[in-house]
Nucleic acid binder design. Structure first.
Length: 164
DNA sequence: GCCAACGTTGGC
DNA sequence: GCCAACGTTGGC
C-alpha cells in the first residue's frame, strides 16, 4: 500500500518563510524561470542551513518574502520541490556566495528547490504583520531577527493568509 | 545611507 | 573559552 505514507506525508506538511531581496531575486524572477522552479542558493547562516538540510520536505509550503526593499513583506507562496542538496555557488570563486573553506567532499552550504504556487493579491507588509498579536512569536517580527529561512506554524500560516 | 542587532573570526 | 573587532542583514 502506497497510500498510507502519502497521507502521513501530507499530514506532516510544514510551513516556512524564505526571504529574498527583490533587486536580486524577486517573485517575478521565480515566475519567469523554467517550470517556475529555481534553486534557493546563497543561504550562509547555519541555522537556516540546518532547516533546509534537515527539515524541509517535498510538498512543504513557504511564503516568499521580499526583504530590503521599498515595501518589505510577504508577496507569494511557493512549494518545496527538491530537498536539501549542496549549494553549488559555494564552490564558484566568481560567485558572491563563494566560500573558500567549503570542500566538495563535505559541502558546508545547502539549498532546496522551490516552485512558484501563487502570488498574494497584495503584499502583506512586515508593518502589518507586526501589528497582529497572534504573530508575536513569528521569528520575522521578533526584534533583531535576521534569519532568512524560518518555520511558520500552521496557525500562523492560516492567520497570515486570512489577512489577504 | 544610517545604524542596531546579530553572527563569525581570531588573538590571547 | 572569552570577547573585541569586524562583516552582514535588513528595516527605516
Amino acid at each position: 500500500m502506497r497510500l498510507l505514507p502519502l497521507i502521513l506525508t501530507s499530514l506532516g506538511m510544514k510551513y516556512w518563510l524564505m526571504k529574498s531581496e527583490p533587486s536580486t531575486f524577486g517573485i517575478d524572477d521565480l515566475i519567469n524561470k523554467p517550470a517556475q522552479t529555481e534553486h534557493w542558493d546563497g543561504v550562509r547562516n547555519y541555522q537556516a542551513r540546518n532547516m533546509m538540510r534537515d527539515d524541509m520536505k517535498v510538498g512543504d509550503r513557504s511564503f516568499f518574502y521580499h526583504s530590503n526593499c521599498e515595501l518589505p513583506g510577504i508577496v507569494g507562496i511557493m512549494e518545496i520541490v527538491r530537498e536539501g542538496y549542496p549549494d553549488f555557488t559555494q564552490f564558484d570563486p566568481g560567485n558572491v556566495h563563494f566560500d573558500p573553506k567549503s570542500k566538495r567532499e563535505n559541502p558546508t552550504w545547502m539549498m532546496v528547490d522551490v516552485k512558484f504556487v501563487r502570488k498574494l493579491s497584495r503584499t502583506i507588509s512586515l508593518q502589518e504583520l507586526k501589528q497582529v498579536p497572534e504573530l508575536a512569536e513569528l521569528a520575522l517580527v521578533r526584534r533583531g531577527n535576521r534569519l532568512s529561512v524560518m518555520s511558520v506554524t500552521e496557525q500562523e500560516w492560516d492567520l497570515i493568509l486570512a489577512l489577504e
